[in-house]
Design a protein around this nucleic acid. Structure first.
Lengths: 185, 185
DNA sequence: GTTCCCATGTAACCCGTTACATGATTTT
DNA sequence: AAAATCATGTAACGGGTTACATGGGAAC
């Protein structure tokens, strides 16, 4: 029962909605799950080979004119079964956030005021951008049939980015209040 | 100007507060920055070798009785300079979140009700646990001198986990409202 | 007096990212 | 007509995780 990494099942899940080429699958991953699980293009190719060896997917070469030839994959019954099993298991891995900017902020006492402000501004701007990008997505998915789960995922992204924006505003105020006091002293 | 990964500077930043052994540094990383930047124990050892070759830190063997001998490191002036430079640069990498649970939720239409509920419950429980763990930390850091930046980092963790908890409550309600409608039909 | 945890460390492996390649189509 | 982008793909490297090792205290 070779237990595969999450990325494998993410690929498998994306194939489950219907046959798709490797390149399209990668694009789809970028558009859909990338907010909480990024997959590199080259990973897609590797994972599909592995999944095919396991009998979870089957590939077929497709000729094209005007574009390079491609290879499309479809899920097998075994693949569907494996996916369902995995989905029903509780997630063992903890969520993780990686933020270089927070690392810098953590050592903020070694940083001049201007740099600190720039960092916070940048953080706020990025969070606001993602928030603004997700808002219409959530709107569009609201009420759409069979899209409830996708909507829930997008909604979490929205909420987290909202929290980040208001956090940035709050700590910007706080930190510069402290710093001006120190300076004035 | 060999530009190093974030992990290197995280290690360097932790050493900047004073000499520390490799094992202690790892523990410290677990306690402090792990919420937004995890570092494996073995990475600490590797990074320190690299940093020493660059002249950013210098190590010394220390004999101990009752415990295994250890090696402690201190930052050099060059290391301090490099750290300050890095801190002042804008962060190039985007924040990323990795959540296996959200991947599962994304494919939730292939999942039975009970499993979905379990997943959401588990997600809420973990977020609430982290929230509860961070709350006293933020309290403790509030008002403590020179701890403003650490407090800001912890506060973001708190806020994000708060958002996660209320999100879990919201979508649990929504998703099961939808499912019971479908079932009743 | 075993059994578990702590403090310290090493080794191997694999996931994931980045760089490279290439011909067709679109843009400037 | 040159330059950028798209659609498709491969190769290589390095970061990060997991597993292993070990001797002394602590716990039961």
């Amino acid at each position: 029962m070779s237990d595969l990494p999450t990325t494998s099942f993410a690929v498998l899940g994306l194939i489950a909605s219907g046959p798709i080429s490797r390149y399209e699958l990668w694009q789809q991953a970028e558009r859909s799950i990338a907010n909480f699980w990024t997959i590199a293009k080259s990973q897609v190719y590797g994972e599909l080979e592995r999944l095919e060896k396991l009998g979870y997917v089957s590939g077929a070469d497709v000729r094209q004119k005007g574009k390079p030839d491609k290879k499309t994959y479809r899920i097998t019954p075994e693949g569907t079964a494996a996916l369902r099993t995995w989905l029903a298991e509780p997630a063992q891995e903890q969520d993780r956030i990686r933020s270089t900017l927070l690392v810098k902020l953590f050592f903020g006492n070694l940083m001049p005021d201007t740099a600190l402000r720039d960092h916070l501004d940048q953080y706020r701007a990025k969070a606001e951008a993602r928030r603004a990008q997700l808002e219409p997505v959530v709107q569009m998915l609201t009420g759409m049939k069979n899209a409830e789960h996708m909507r829930a995922c997008a909604l979490l992204g929205l909420r987290i980015n909202e929290a980040m924006v208001s956090w940035a505003d709050e700590v910007t105020k706080d930190l510069f209040a402290v710093r001006s006091r120190k300076k004035g002293r």
